[in-house]
Every structure is written in C-alpha cells, then in structure tokens.
C-alpha cells in the first residue's frame, strides 16, 4: 500500500494581480521506503507541491475542491485537506511528515540553541520526557555524523558550518521518526564535497529508518544518485514521471531531455552546452495548451498551442504528458 496519494492537486495564490496558478492537476503516489526525486527549475511549483502535503503554503493559497491528499498511517488514513485546527495539523507538520529546508541558516531560530529547538519539537510530537528528548537529540546528532554531539547540542546555528547545520537539520527532522520526509533542495547550498557526504548520509538513513522521501532538486545528478523514481515538473504541471533509470536514460518529454542535455558532462568536454532555450514564463502569463510549448524545440503543430496534453504510457511505470508521445503511440 502506498504511503501517500496525491490526486488532482491544484493550487492557486490570490494576489493583487489576480489568481496565480502555482500547481495544476498534479497526481502521484509514494510507497513506504521509496525515494522520489521531484525535479524542475525555479517556478516549476515543486516546493509549493511539497508544502501542500504539510498544508504549509501561505494563507492566500486556494486549493481546488477536487484536490485529494491521503496519508496512510498505521492508525488509518488521514485526509490532509480536511485538517483545519493547528492541533490536528501537527500530524503532517513534524509528526508523521517532516521537512528539511534548503537554507539551514534561515530555518533554525538564531536565538535558540540547536538543542533547545530539537527538544521543543520532540516535546510537541512525542510523549518523551524532557530528559529523554535531550538524550534522543544528542543521539541523533551523533548519528548524522556530528562529532562531540553533546557540546554541539548547546551551540547556536551560527556557530556551525553549513554542512554541519544541514546535518543538524536532518537529525532534527528524523528524531520524531517521520513516515515521510520532504527534503527541499537539501544540498543546493552546500559545497560538492559536503553535498556528497549529505547524500551518503541520507541514503544510509533511508536504509535504516525506511521512511519515504520526496527529494526536491533541480540537479538530475543528485536525483540519479538518490532516487528510485522521478517526477519532472514545469510551470506547475507534472510533465513526466517514472523509474529513475527509465527517465534518465530514456527521457521522453522534450523538457526532461533539455534538462539532461544542459548538464555539463565531464566525460565529453567537447560537447557544447545545450541550454533549454528561452526563459520560464511568468506565472502571470501561463501559456495556453502545453505549458512548455513556448520553449519547446519539437512542436508538432497547433495542438501543442491549444490543447493540454494528457498522459501517454511511455514504458514500464513511465508516463509522459506530451503530444509527441501520443503521436508515437498511435503510429
């Protein structure tokens, strides 16, 4: 059985300039222990999608009534959209669902020690005593590779290096033993050497704790190293999803292909870098038809400009929302 099912997630923000569509008709499922890479450039709606799972989007967010988000816990299914009171929402905000943010400096409170923040959330989400929470926090800091954990426990975020802070963030997110971990660009702000360490750490922790992970990133290399499956988003829509090997070796959507071609490869220095042409349109100027048609190099006709493409089956568990693929399947 799946851990979380997201169906028809559509979300708009009410702004002075009108309703802005951030996410449109996104559906996916994640099994326990599975790692899904959620890929796309800035403005693709990947962070908004992830925050929706915790109902963490700003107050001006308007969810479409057809949106269904169901979390399957041992105690039974939880309908996330129906959670209203803060007390009830704790289950998806640090209880069964936990989040690691991109910028750990901005996510820790600067005037509280690392330890007091870790203990605070444990007291909210578990029945542990203060002393037990403290012991567990130090154990978790040690587990993520922070040396001298007991003294780090009493330090402030600014006293730790970037890599150390991200480790502390991971320790904090995992100490409540969440079933689902959302990692929003957890390595983007880090050096490559530290990124490699954090990726290794996360792989070990998945093996040990068995939680499902949604790993948000714009780096397909990071996805290839961590994920079991991949979902690619563009301008609020999911355009391709499938097993990681399938999507990376056999990308079917022109956008996914573009993201892969844009990556500088070390084994062929003579290969020119191929950017995805053009810029992502402003969400105020969402294109009609396929959202990607303004930058697509493989437009097959007016259908791309007028009609939103549906899903085409493009391999085992692999589907792509592109008219080109429908044409291929029909032929």
């Amino acid at each position: 059985m799946s851990l979380i099912d997201v169906e028809n997630l559509t979300l708009q923000f009410r702004t002075d300039e009108g309703l802005i569509t951030a996410v449109e008709d996104v559906s996916f499922s994640l099994a326990p222990g599975e790692v899904m890479g959620l890929v796309g450039e800035s403005g693709s709606g990947k962070s908004v999608t992830a925050k929706a799972l915790m109902k963490l989007n700003a107050a001006n967010a308007v969810y479409d009534p057809a949106t269904r988000i169901t979390l399957h816990l041992d105690s039974g299914p939880v309908d996330v959209m129906s959670l209203k009171r803060p007390r009830d929402m704790e289950i998806v905000r640090g209880g069964a669902v936990s989040m690691i943010f991109q910028e750990p400096m901005a996510s820790f409170a600067p005037a509280m020690t690392i330890g007091s923040q870790m203990v605070e959330q444990l007291l909210i989400h578990t029945d542990l005593s203060k002393r037990a929470a403290r012991d567990l926090s130090i154990e978790m800091l040690d587990r993520v590779g922070i040396s001298d954990a007991a003294s780090r426990f009493n330090q402030y975020a600014f006293e730790l290096s970037g890599g150390m802070r991200q480790r502390a963030m991971i320790a904090m997110a995992l100490s409540t033993r969440p079933k689902l971990l959302i990692a929003d660009e957890p390595t983007t702000a880090l050096d490559v050497t530290i990124q490699a360490q954090v990726i290794d750490l996360m792989k070990d922790l998945v093996a040990e704790f068995g939680m499902g992970i949604i790993f948000i990133t714009h780096d397909l290399g990071v996805v290839a190293q961590t994920a079991d499956k991949v979902a690619v988003m563009y301008l609020g829509r999911m355009v391709e999803q499938g097993p990681v090997r399938e999507v990376i070796r056999n990308p079917r959507h022109p956008y996914t292909r573009g993201l892969i071609d844009a990556l500088p490869q070390l084994d062929d220095l003579d290969k020119p870098l191929m950017p995805v042409p053009g810029d992502i349109p402003s969400p105020l100027e969402r294109p009609e038809g396929c959202v990607f048609h303004t930058r697509c190099t493989r437009i097959i006709g007016d259908i791309c400009r007028t009609t939103v493409p549906g899903w085409a089956d493009t391999g085992p568990d692999h589907r792509t929302a592109c008219h080109l693929c429908h044409q291929d399947t029909a032929a």
Partner: peptide
C-alpha cells in the same frame, strides 16, 4: 581527485562511494 569524485554521476547505477572526502 576528491572534488572530481564528489560530482554526482548522472548514471543511477554508478552509486559508489569511493574517494569521498571526509570532514570539512
């Protein structure tokens, strides 16, 4: 050499962890 091996490979089957740099 360590900086090279830290670059995430685009090959999902190449997930080895040799030559990873320890510490900071």
């Amino acid at each position: 050499k360590a900086l090279f091996s830290a670059i995430p490979s685009l090959d999902p089957d190449d997930r080895d962890r040799a030559q990873k740099l320890e510490g900071e």
